[in-house]
Simulated scan of single mutants.
Amino acid sequence: MDPATGRLALGNWHLPLPRSRAGRVTVGSVLLVGGTLGFLPILGFWMVPVGLLVLSHDLPYVRRKRRRFSVWWERRRLRQRD
């Protein structure tokens, strides 16, 4: 999350987020719940990873898991290039 703009940056894509911690936790939780109902027409399974990303900025447990995953992913990507 970019602290200057209050947006979650994913490559070239930017998602505006609430500046309050409670607002971000609420948005992340709603995205997770909506993602579990991904079989419905409007909702989708894409909401689960986005919800985890939003929550990872405020919840230490989710942040550690996100960081561990990103380190694993980068190491895997580098091994495949060699």
Rank of each mutant, 00 (worst) to 15 (best):
M1C: 05
M1H: 08
D2Y: 04
D2Q: 06
D2N: 15
G6L: 08
R7S: 13
R7K: 12
L8F: 14
L8I: 13
L8A: 08
A9H: 12
A9E: 14
L10S: 07
L10D: 07
G11K: 05
N12H: 08
N12K: 08
W13C: 05
H14Q: 14
H14N: 08
L15E: 04
L15F: 14
P16E: 04
P16D: 07
P16C: 04
L17N: 05
L17H: 01
R19P: 10
R19K: 14
R19W: 07
R19Q: 14
A22Y: 06
G23Q: 07
G23V: 07
G23L: 05
V25Q: 11
V25A: 12
V25I: 15
T26E: 10
T26M: 15
T26P: 01
T26A: 15
T26K: 08
T26C: 15
V27Q: 07
V27M: 15
G28V: 04
S29V: 13
V30M: 11
L31S: 03
V33M: 09
V33G: 04
G34M: 12
G34E: 11
G34N: 11
G35R: 01
T36W: 13
L37G: 01
L37C: 07
L37F: 13
G38K: 00
G38P: 05
F39W: 15
L40Q: 03
L40D: 00
L40H: 03
P41W: 01
P41A: 02
P41Q: 01
L43A: 11
G44C: 04
G44K: 00
F45D: 01
F45A: 12
F45R: 03
F45P: 10
W46K: 00
W46H: 06
M47N: 10
M47D: 03
V48I: 15
P49N: 06
G51Q: 02
V54P: 00
L55A: 02
S56Y: 02
S56T: 07
H57D: 12
L59Y: 06
L59H: 02
P60R: 13
Y61R: 14
V62R: 00
R63F: 04
R64N: 11
K65C: 10
R67M: 06
R67L: 12
R67F: 11
R67W: 10
R67A: 12
R68P: 00
F69M: 04
F69T: 03
F69Q: 03
S70E: 13
S70M: 13
W72V: 06
E74G: 07
R76E: 14
R76D: 13
R76T: 15
L78D: 10
L78T: 11
L78M: 09
Q80M: 12
R81Q: 15
D82F: 06
D82K: 10
